[in-house]
Design a binder for these strands. Structure first.
Length: 269
DNA sequence: CCATTCGCCTGCGGGC
DNA sequence: TGCCCGCAGGCGAATG
C-alpha cells in the first residue's frame, strides 16, 4: 500500500528515468482511474521535457518545461513499471521517452492523475487542505498540541487525517504509535506534551527507516523486473495480529470504521 | 466546524 | 474444484 515512503522511493526511482527526458508519446488505455484522466493530458505532455520530480504527501509530481506538472496518486495498488517487456491488464497510462517506456499500473484504480499549471500548484484542491510534511520542519510537538486541542477522536484517526499530518496511512500510523508507546484509542486532544514529544520522532523514524529500506532493497530504486515502489518490509505490529511482540505480549487488532488497527496493549498505554 | 458513514474497485484468501 | 464472501485501502461526498 503506497504511503509516503513508497511514493518517495517511487519518485526517486522515476527521477533517473524521466529527468531531462522528452516525452515522445502518451497512451491512455482506459479513460479514467478514480477520476477521468484530464482531456488534454496527451496533448500537453507529448513533446514536453521533464524538468524535475518531487513529492507532496502521497502525491508524486512530474514537472515539465511546458509549465505543467503532472500529479499522480498511487491509491492503494498503483505502481510504475519501467520498461516492461509486455503490457499487463492494468497498465492504464503509458509514457514513452526516446529510450524507455513507463507504465502506470493500478489494479484497483483508487489512484489518480491530474495535470495543473506549475505556477498554481498550490491551488490544486487536494493540496489546499494538507497539513505539514511529517519529515519537514512543520511537524513539531507544539504544532500537534495546537492542531489536536479539543479533539475527541482517537490519535489513530487523527494521524490518518491528511489535514493534520500529510502522508501517513494505516500502516505507518500503527507503526509510529507502537514506536512512541502510545495507545491508538487515546483521545487525540488528551495526549500530554511529553507524549507528543515522543510521537513526533517516532513518526519520523518509522518513515525514514521505510524509505531507507525501500532504497536499499531496490537496485538504484528499480528492481530487475522493472517494478518501482514496492518492496518487502518488516513491521513491528502491522499485519501481525496474535504474533508475539518484543515485550513478550501479543499483537492485538481492532476494527474502527472498517479499518484495522494493530497494536501491543502492553507497550502502548 | 466536527464526527461518522459510505462508495469507489478488484485481487486474494478462507470457508464450504 | 469452484464459487461466494469479506477484506484491504485513500479520499471525497454526504449525512447528522
Amino acid at each position: 500500500m503506497p504511503e509516503l515512503p513508497e511514493v518517495e522511493t517511487t519518485v526517486r526511482g522515476l527521477t533517473p528515468v524521466l529527468e531531462g527526458q522528452r516525452i515522445t508519446r502518451v497512451q491512455l488505455r482506459r479513460p479514467d482511474l478514480r477520476r477521468p484522466f484530464p482531456d488534454d493530458l496527451g496533448q500537453r505532455l507529448t513533446g514536453a521535457t521533464v524538468t524535475g520530480l518531487s513529492r507532496r504527501a502521497k502525491y508524486g509530481l512530474i514537472a515539465t518545461d511546458r509549465g505543467d506538472t503532472m500529479i499522480f496518486h498511487l491509491g492503494m495498488s498503483g505502481r510504475w513499471r519501467v520498461d516492461p517487456a509486455e503490457l499487463l491488464k492494468h497498465d492504464h497510462l503509458i509514457l514513452e521517452t526516446p529510450t524507455q517506456r513507463l507504465a502506470l499500473n493500478d489494479a484497483r484504480r483508487f489512484g489518480s492523475v491530474d495535470l495543473v499549471p506549475t505556477a498554481s500548484l498550490a491551488d490544486f484542491p487536494a493540496f489546499k487542505t494538507l497539513g505539514p510534511e511529517p519529515l519537514g520542519p512543520g511537524l513539531t510537538a507544539g504544532y500537534l498540541h495546537t492542531a489536536l486541542a479539543g479533539r475527541i477522536a482517537s490519535i489513530k484517526l487523527m494521524l490518518l487525517d491528511q489535514r493534520i499530518v500529510a502522508g501517513l496511512g494505516n500502516i505507518y500510523v500503527c507503526e509510529a504509535l507502537f514506536l512512541g508507546g502510545i495507545a491508538p484509542k487515546q483521545a487525540a486532544g488528551t495526549l500530554s506534551r511529553a507524549r507528543l514529544d515522543r510521537l513526533v520522532p517516532a513518526i519520523r523514524s518509522v518513515l525514514l527507516a521505510a524509505i531507507e529500506a525501500g532504497g536499499s532493497s531496490l537496485r538504484d530504486y528499480v528492481r530487475p523486473d522493472g517494478e518501482l515502489g514496492y518492496f518487502s518490509k518488516q513491521f513491528a505490529v502491522y499485519g501481525r495480529e496474535g504474533q508475539p511482540c518484543g515485550c513478550g505480549g501479543a499483537v492485538a487488532r481492532y476494527a474502527e470504521g472498517g479499518r484495522s488497527t494493530f497494536w501491543c496493549p502492553k507497550c502502548q498505554r
